[in-house]
Structure formats: structure tokens, C-alpha cells
Amino acid sequence: MKFGVIQFPGSNCDSDTYYAVRDVLRQPVEYIWHQDTDLRKFDCILVPGGFSYGDYLRTGAVARFSPVMGALEGFADRGGLVLGICNGFQILCEAHLLPGALTANVGLKFICRHVNLRVEHNRSAFANECREGQVLRIPIAHGEGNYYCDPETLARLEANGQILFRYCDEQGSLTDEANPNGSLANIAGIVNERGNVAGMMPHPERASESVLGSEDGQFVLKSLVSALVKA
């Protein structure tokens, strides 16, 4: 089982993600430079947070043209597991590996704080270690996390169980107050139809050790390991 963490110029959660896999999951992990195109040795690829290419033009808009992204598309086609976190989620949307887009937060400000996420179901490779309806405390840190898609896409996401996580209050209720960025239907994370490519705005790697204030991110990260073990 081998994890890869992509490094774009401007990625800044690459080492956090790398450490979470190496030191918390205790799984083999390697960095993948944005110019690399051979992804054959990997089983799961993490697209980390940060400001790839400075997020100039639009978040993720430049990164999607990196050589590694073509290879990542092939990797996903072959059924490899891909999780984009924060900027990684934005990049996956820009690359059309996931539907929808992430626009500026409703308050137009960057927000960094712990939020609560409701696990919509545990059938995916990204939440199989969670209970359905479980509330996870995981931080967000973004200026553009306001998920949007057209009504047909939303209906499809709902019908197919492609919504993985939604912003909620401590009890798991989907309130407007609990929605930090204005995301459509409180969406915090989604998965593609095939179930192998997911994106989420919250940072599980930042909630993977008690010293950081929460270990709930481990539920997400360990789900990847379980999925790979079963595969």
C-alpha cells in the first residue's frame, strides 16, 4: 500500500499531509512533484491544501494544467483512490474530476477554525471508518470554500449518495449558522460517481493528533487505509 502526496509550487499542506500518513497512519508515503507523470507505484494519491501557483487567476485554475494532473486523470480512470483536501478539492473541481466549483466564502473573508461535519454515510472509501450521522470536529482554512453546482448536479449528488460530509452544528443539525462559507446544501465534501475520487474543504490532517485539539480527522484518513486493505 503506497500513498503519494502531490507537491505543486505553492502547496503548503503537503508536508502536513505527508506526516499524517507517515506518523499517524504509519503507512508508506512519498511526495509527487508536479512535473512527475508516472504514478504507477501509488495506491492512493492525496492532493494537499495550499495556494498552488499562488491561486492566481482562480483557485486551482493553473494547477490543473500541471503535467501531474494528466497522469492523475489516468490514475483515477484506473480506479486509484484520490482525495483532494482544500486547495486539492478546488484543483479536482477545476480538472473536472469532481463536479461543481468552489467560490468565495459568503463573508468574503478567509476563515480558519474548527467546524463540525456530519458524515452522510459510511459506504464510501473516504468514510468507512465513520458511523453514519457521526459528527466530526475538523478545521477549515480557506477563502474559497463555498461549494456550488447546478440544480441537476445537486440532485444527482444527492440521489447517488455522492455527498460525503456536510457542515452541521454540534448535534449534527444542518443549520445556516453552522455553514461557515455559504456552501450549497452545507456541502463540505463530495465523491465522484465511481466512488474513487473525493474532495473536501476541511483538513483531516490537521485533526489527526490529540496535541492538535482533535483526532477526528483520523476517521477519514483511516478509511482510506481500510478501503485499500479491502481492495
Binding site: 503548503n12 508536508s15 491544501g49 473573508k109 478567509f110 476563515i111 480558519c112 478545521p139 490537521r206 492538535l212
Partner: peptide, 27 residues
């Protein structure tokens, strides 16, 4: 103020902003 700052990246921040001092673990 500090909600607008990423105060967690590098995953060492062990006491978040708002207390008497910030604490960072040394990996």
C-alpha cells in the same frame, strides 16, 4: 482577527490563538 489567519498550517499549533500564549510542539 485570527479567524482570518491560517493559524494551524504545519500542524504544530497545540494551543490555538486566544489563550495567554501560542504553543507549538517541536516535532
Amino acid at each position: 482577527v485570527y479567524d482570518q489567519y491560517d493559524h494551524m498550517v504545519q500542524t504544530n499549533t497545540s494551543v490555538l490563538p486566544g489563550s495567554d500564549a501560542a504553543v507549538l510542539r517541536i516535532r
